[in-house]
Design a protein around this nucleic acid. Structure first.
Lengths: 230, 230
DNA sequence: CAGTGGTCTAGACCACGAT
DNA sequence: TCGTGGTCTAGACCACTGG
């Protein structure tokens, strides 16, 4: 058997035994190197596989940690992040990074909103103190006047409903696997190059008008998506 | 800038220029190493990032190649693989790996079919000669007698409808990001450890009886999922 | 057969985290 | 300050692909 597979199996066994709880720290790369009379390159090969598999994750220069149970997510439903995560036994937290309404349009403005002025809301969402999602929400400045004065660390759907009388009635998501862009990786305290699920979501009201357009970057090991159909 | 990022950018530029078409072969690792006066480790770091990003892919010991446009897939719809891929300009192909009905039950049998005897159909699906999907389909032996004598390289939904008068009316998918299990990687001519989308799908008839249970492994760079909701 | 990617060794320096 | 992961060098042998 290949050496990096031995190391991988060794760590998998550590996890399976239950001797390592979610969130706890693995032995350092150099100590694993000594354990197996090997080199860091090979140890890191094993760790990378386990990371891709979703069993462990690294935080920049802090170390390697055991992944928690995945969050079950319904991309095609109006979901309340805080409620959903609590139902599944996690402690949610939302941080507003910025809300901007610059005079110059964004790229998405041209593509989806025919060039009109937009708000851009950027947020990071955490479960159990681990940042697992960064999202950018774009919506019309004219339709949501004063949005930047609202409380934005809860459900945007609720804010739109309560303060602007706008209801979402349909949405379309496109989901792909890619890597975190560098600026997103930084916000989530990950290395650039970390795999992720990218979700692009367009939401419409009853008149089939586009209400908002979201781009979400989910850590690949933090989520599983549930879709029901027909 | 980091060296592996320089190499990554260099290759990205090659792709963006259009000088490299989908499916064409990249320079070898050793030639890139010479170009940048670097080492294979560093070159492979750059290639791994580009692979994770979905821009290139490797085939075992054959080399690195440029990825094609992604296939758009609606996981929550009854879709005909052959029709869908052709509509998007690809040339589809389905290979039946095996169909078995062993006396001993499968693990899924216990979990989903309360222990009854099952067929297990294993197939690989290709677009433009590239294997991008391996799937296992489980269904009741008693309900689909003689299924192993049917033509199984087309739509299973059609076979069930035409020969067994069974119609799918509802389905539920669970989608996660992980790595190809070793035996799947082999079938798809990939290294073990290649990232993938894993789709577990349960399909029900009008009486809410479970008709079949599928496990699909999609190459992460070959597909983007489209989901519409509410 | 030559060339390719897959695996591996034995080191090194750096930036950043924890303390 | 010390330990950590992040990046990098300069080689090596092997299994397999392709001509």
């Amino acid at each position: 058997m290949l050496l990096y597979q031995k190391i991988r199996n060794y760590i998998q066994d550590l996890l399976a035994q239950g001797s390592m709880q979610p969130g706890s720290k693995l032995p350092s790369e150099r100590s694993l190197q000594d354990t197996f009379n090997s080199t860091r390159i090979t140890v890191r090969e094993a760790l990378a596989r386990l990371e891709a598999e979703g069993l462990i994750y690294s935080q920049k220069r802090r170390g390697w940690f055991v992944t928690s149970k995945k969050l079950s997510w319904h991309p095609a439903r109006k979901v309340n992040f805080n409620r959903l995560t609590k139902e599944q036994g996690f402690e949610p937290k939302t941080e507003v990074i910025s809300i901007e309404a610059p005079s110059s349009g964004y790229h998405v403005a041209k593509e989806h909103f025919s060039g009109e002025a937009l708000f851009k809301l950027t947020r990071v969402r955490k479960v159990d103190e681990r940042a697992i999602l960064m999202e950018e929400i774009y919506c019309l400045e004219s339709r949501f006047e004063g949005l930047d004065k609202q409380a934005l660390n809860g459900s945007i759907t609720d804010v739109m409903s309560m303060h602007y009388n706008v209801e979402i009635s349909h949405e379309k998501c496109v989901i792909s696997v890619t890597v975190l862009p560098d600026e997103v990786a930084q916000k989530l305290e990950k290395n650039s190059g970390a795999p992720c699920l990218k979700v692009k979501r367009a939401r419409y009201d009853g008149q089939k008008q586009l209400v908002d357009y979201n781009v979400e970057y989910w850590l690949h090991d933090a989520i599983e998506m549930v879709v029901e159909g027909i």
